[in-house]
Design a protein around this nucleic acid. Structure first.
Lengths: 158, 158
DNA sequence: ATTTAATAAAGAATAATATCCTTTTAAAAT
DNA sequence: ATTTTAAAAGGATATTATTCTTTATTAAAT
């Protein structure tokens, strides 16, 4: 039987996806509760998989990875085994942070984070175009980013 | 004068962007150091902005947000003030997790996380299409996601 | 309505970690 | 060689996470 999120769980998730270093004490204070139920709820949310992990969010640009690129890709073949192989290969490329199979004008949409245009081109030449069955490839180079977060909208849940 | 990252800093960042709940003790052990320099380095990485924040990564689907959509948008006008207004409006939409100004076939690329197709359509009708100067709008509906992370490739840095 | 059972919260005690401070080491510069 | 600087080590303290026990609340059953 599946565990169901209640209003308090949602509030906890909202806080933790904004700042996971919040202490149980501070969360408890905000929700007018004691620390134990907060602690237990968080543990349950982790165990049940609602919280997948805790990570540090880095400043890409400051660290030297100044370029984000989206790449739309169409494939020439669409056999199941090939699609799986394609995704598997893509997963080995550390520059690729996202890979989505999509409907619409492309088969796949990739998101890359790299140092600069040169690193991008190197990726295309030495990695991407070596994959077989590659069809059309169209890149969207990011000029500026107006919003970039991982925070999902929990207000619509429940 | 800017602070410069050395090999140890990079190693710390690698660990923390995989799992920010690692204790300084555990990081220190892995790097064969004592806890104090690790602690001080982390504080410096935070203060200098290399680490922007710590967040919990949630399981979108499990929580009920089952659909990711990318939307390519072209605008009819391109005055500076309008572009700024556009981004500002977009920032108020909690469904939108990313908004990039791009070169290529679109002016903007958005990433949305919503409950389902219905929520997506509601967004389009009640929010997106109300924005003025909107040109072409093209959606890529995610069918499946082969990779989705925030981990950037630090092996290329330094 | 009353009792029972089950669940969640509260409160207190302990263990582990973060945080701070002082000392030591190592490296660089004079 | 000596001085100066920065980083690391080591230890002490304050917070927090974690565990356990008790209390309260709710729902179910009689």
């Amino acid at each position: 039987m599946a565990y169901h999120l209640d209003k308090i769980d949602i509030e906890i998730l909202k806080m933790l996806q904004k700042d996971s270093n919040r202490t149980t004490k501070s969360i408890a204070a905000q929700l007018d509760m004691s620390t134990s139920p907060i602690f237990e709820r968080i543990k349950k949310l982790e165990k049940e998989g609602y919280i997948k992990k805790y990570v540090a969010v880095l400043d890409n640009k400051k660290i030297g990875l100044k370029l984000t690129v989206f790449i739309g890709i169409t494939l020439q073949g669409h056999t199941r085994s090939y699609l799986e192989k394609f995704v598997k290969e893509i997963n080995n490329f550390p520059e690729v942070v996202e890979c989505h199979r999509v409907s619409g004008n492309f088969d796949y949409l990739l998101k890359l984070v790299v140092e600069d245009i040169e690193a991008y081109e190197t990726f295309i030449i030495t990695k991407l175009t070596l994959l077989p069955y590659l069809g059309n490839v169209q890149s969207l180079i990011t000029l500026s980013t107006g919003k970039e977060t991982n925070e999902i909208d929990l207000s619509s849940v429940l």
